[in-house]
């Protein structure tokens, strides 16, 4: 099963190495990892998507990550209400014949054309991973020349419908 873990870490040389090292050392499978600055100076946010067999593994992963001295906080947000986004750039073959047809696909996905070449288009699409997967499938028949994906970055929504709150309401 897929799980999304977010970490805040000290922005210090070697931190990313320590974290990716941990994944390979403990034989965990990373599907994607994104890193960037957070709202706090010298603190970076990392989002990992991992594929695990069971809950015990995800517990071990979070504990091992938490043990790292530069890791400030680890949260497994898979079960919570989150905003998760990924960006993909797709260079796809396009002839004058297919262009308008492709446009009809791009529009409902709210993707955009960011570069037009003689016989290719570069399409940018953002959204949840499933949406991107679906769009890539649609583009495949036209001939994908190159594909670059950022991997998901995510955090919690402002309002959580946590099980705690639900319980409280029902008691009241």
């Amino acid at each position: 099963m897929k799980r999304i873990i977010t970490l805040t870490v000290n922005n210090r040389p070697g931190v990313l190495n320590r974290i990716t090292n941990l994944f390979s050392k403990r034989n965990y499978n990373i599907e994607s990892i994104t890193v960037g600055h957070s709202e706090i100076e010298d603190v970076s946010r990392i989002t990992c998507v991992v594929n695990v067999e069971n809950d015990q593994v995800i517990e071990q992963i979070t504990k091992q990550l938490n043990k790292q001295i530069d890791v400030l906080k680890v949260t497994d947000i898979s079960e919570q209400s989150i905003v998760a986004r990924e960006l993909a750039l797709i260079k796809v073959l396009s002839t004058p014949n297919t262009r308008s047809e492709m446009n009809a696909l791009i529009e409902p996905f709210r993707a955009s054309i960011v570069d037009v070449g003689k016989d290719t288009l570069v399409i940018q699409i953002t959204g949840e991973s499933d949406k991107i997967e679906a769009f890539i499938e649609l583009m495949k028949p036209y001939g994908i020349k190159e594909l670059a994906r950022t991997g998901a970055t995510a955090f919690l929504r402002g309002t959580q419908r946590s099980s705690n709150q639900v319980k409280n309401i029902s008691i009241v």
Binding site: P13, G14, N17, I69
Partner: peptide, 14 residues
């Protein structure tokens, strides 16, 4: 040596 010893140290510095 930082790269080599990352998985085998509790922490390392340069």
């Amino acid at each position: 040596i930082l790269g080599i010893t990352t998985p085998i140290t509790k922490y390392n510095y340069q």
